[in-house]
Every structure is written in C-alpha cells, then in structure tokens.
Simulated scan of single mutants.
Amino acid sequence: MSEYRMIDLEEEKNELGKIEISPEVIEVITGLAASEVEGVFSLRGGFATGVVERLGKKNHGKGVKVELREDGVKIDISLVLSYGVSVPEVAREVQTNIQQALQTMTSITLDSVNVHVLSIQLEMQEETQ
C-alpha cells in the first residue's frame, strides 16, 4: 500500500507555488507503462485489489507498490507474463518503460524498479478441425 505523503518536485517550485504528486499517480503511470510491454499478460494485485475490481472500479495501479524514500522512489511491480516470452528480457523492458514514463511525466528520481514475475499465463488454443 502506498504512503499518503506527496512527492515534492523541488525543481518545479516557482513563484506560483509548488507541485506535489500523489503516490497513486505514480502507481497508475507505472501500471500503464508495464501493461504496454509485449509479453506482459497482466498485473497481479492483492486481495484488496480483487475486491475493488469486483465492485466495478478499475484499478490501474494494481500490482504496484510505491515506497517514498529520501534518496528516491522505490517501485515493486508484480506481473503475470505470457507463455513463451523471455522472462529476463520482458522484465528489463518493463523496468525501462516504467523509468522512461515516470521521467517523462513526473521528473521524479527512481531509486529502483523491482519486477516480480508471479506466474506464466498458459493460453489454451482452440483446436481447428
């Protein structure tokens, strides 16, 4: 679960005030960036995520944990990959895509992006007759 404090963007302070980014925003950006990578079947959330989705709410940050630290932001993401993909290659691409998306959209400093592959999705193909 995310901490509720906001991330201050020091370089974005100006005469109008300061800019703060909620950890939930980082979760959503991270989830969407990971979903864009070919070979990622789905993100895997916990029990609470499943309950929220059953109530009809879409949770774009599921499977993502954001930890705010003094030296940057630590992200843990839990994934299910498609069968037949190279796990290390897809995991590295997920890390890169998340880092690039967060840098482009928020300018935050990432300490680490830890990818946890929890399962491989075996897709059953229909037999053609």
Results as ranks from 00 to 15, higher is better:
86 S>D: 15
42 S>R: 14
55 L>W: 11
70 E>T: 08
79 L>Y: 10
46 G>P: 07
30 T>G: 08
47 F>P: 01
83 Y>V: 02
66 V>W: 02
78 S>L: 02
47 F>N: 05
117 V>M: 06
106 T>W: 12
62 K>L: 09
57 K>A: 08
116 H>A: 02
12 E>T: 08
121 Q>S: 03
61 G>D: 06
63 G>K: 14
41 F>Y: 12
114 N>S: 08
99 Q>L: 01
48 A>I: 14
84 G>Q: 04
82 S>T: 14
59 N>D: 14
98 I>T: 12
66 V>C: 01
113 V>A: 03
111 D>Y: 02
3 E>K: 06
61 G>W: 07
76 D>F: 10
65 K>Q: 09
29 I>E: 01
47 F>C: 04
21 I>S: 12
36 E>G: 06
16 L>G: 05
45 G>I: 05
53 E>V: 06
105 M>S: 10
60 H>T: 08
82 S>Y: 08
5 R>T: 12
100 Q>P: 03
55 L>P: 00
81 L>N: 07
42 S>Q: 14
121 Q>F: 12
105 M>I: 11
11 E>S: 13
11 E>N: 13
28 V>E: 14
31 G>H: 03
114 N>H: 11
46 G>N: 13
117 V>N: 10
53 E>Y: 13
85 V>T: 05
59 N>L: 15
83 Y>P: 00
12 E>S: 13
28 V>A: 15
